[in-house]
Amino acid sequence: MDEQQQHKPEEIIQFEAEFAPEVLDVIVLTGSSGFTRSCLFDEQYWTGMISLNGWRLHDQDKIQSGSFTLLVKDEVQVLDNYAQQIKSDRLFHLKVRRNGNRFLLVEWLSEIDPFEDPGLEAMLQEQMEHVSIQDARLGILTLNRMVQTFDGELNWLGQTVRISIQQSEGESLQQQLQTAYRLLDEAAQWDERIRAFAAKELTTLKNNSWLEEDEQPLTEAEFAKRLQLEDITITPEGYSFWFHDNDLFWGHVVSVDGTPEQGLQQAQIAG
Rank of each mutant, 00 (worst) to 15 (best):
residue 65 S to V: 04
residue 73 K to H: 07
residue 55 W to R: 01
residue 62 K to D: 02
residue 82 Y to L: 01
residue 106 V to T: 08
residue 58 H to I: 10
residue 56 R to K: 15
residue 60 Q to P: 11
residue 107 E to C: 15
residue 105 L to M: 05
residue 39 C to K: 12
residue 84 Q to S: 05
residue 65 S to A: 14
residue 53 N to T: 13
residue 105 L to D: 00
residue 107 E to T: 10
residue 56 R to W: 02
residue 84 Q to G: 11
residue 53 N to R: 15
residue 87 K to I: 13
residue 86 I to G: 00
residue 65 S to C: 09
residue 49 M to Q: 11
residue 110 S to F: 12
residue 97 R to M: 15
residue 94 L to D: 10
residue 65 S to Y: 04
residue 46 W to C: 11
residue 62 K to C: 07
residue 69 T to L: 06
residue 90 R to T: 11
residue 53 N to F: 09
residue 95 K to I: 10
residue 77 Q to G: 04
residue 73 K to P: 10
residue 42 D to H: 08
residue 41 F to T: 03
residue 60 Q to L: 03
residue 77 Q to N: 07
residue 43 E to H: 15
residue 82 Y to C: 05
residue 83 A to D: 09
residue 72 V to A: 06
residue 98 R to M: 13
residue 64 Q to K: 14
residue 106 V to C: 02
residue 60 Q to F: 05
residue 77 Q to D: 11
residue 69 T to I: 13
residue 57 L to N: 07
residue 86 I to D: 00
residue 63 I to E: 04
residue 107 E to W: 03
residue 96 V to G: 06
residue 105 L to P: 01
residue 86 I to N: 03
residue 41 F to V: 07
residue 96 V to N: 04
residue 75 E to T: 11
residue 49 M to I: 02
residue 77 Q to A: 14
residue 93 H to I: 07
residue 53 N to C: 07
residue 78 V to S: 12
residue 106 V to W: 09
residue 82 Y to P: 05
residue 84 Q to N: 15
residue 62 K to A: 04
residue 47 T to P: 08
residue 50 I to S: 02
residue 38 S to Q: 04
residue 83 A to T: 01
residue 83 A to V: 02
residue 43 E to S: 14
residue 97 R to K: 14
residue 57 L to G: 03
residue 41 F to D: 14
residue 63 I to H: 02
residue 91 L to R: 00
residue 44 Q to M: 12
residue 69 T to R: 14
residue 75 E to R: 15
residue 62 K to N: 06
residue 80 D to Y: 03
residue 100 G to C: 11
residue 55 W to E: 00
residue 72 V to E: 00
residue 73 K to W: 12
residue 67 S to W: 00
residue 40 L to A: 06
residue 54 G to A: 05
residue 96 V to W: 07
residue 63 I to R: 03
residue 63 I to N: 00
residue 53 N to D: 04
residue 55 W to M: 00
residue 72 V to T: 05
residue 63 I to F: 10
residue 41 F to Y: 10
residue 76 V to G: 05
residue 50 I to K: 03
residue 39 C to Q: 13
residue 104 L to F: 02
residue 56 R to P: 08
residue 59 D to S: 11
residue 100 G to P: 06
residue 98 R to K: 12
residue 110 S to I: 13
residue 50 I to F: 06
residue 73 K to D: 09
residue 77 Q to L: 14
residue 54 G to C: 09
residue 87 K to V: 08
residue 48 G to A: 08
residue 71 L to W: 08
residue 70 L to G: 01
residue 47 T to N: 08
residue 71 L to F: 11
residue 100 G to H: 15
residue 53 N to H: 13
residue 85 Q to W: 10
residue 98 R to C: 10
residue 43 E to P: 14
residue 50 I to Y: 04
residue 97 R to L: 02
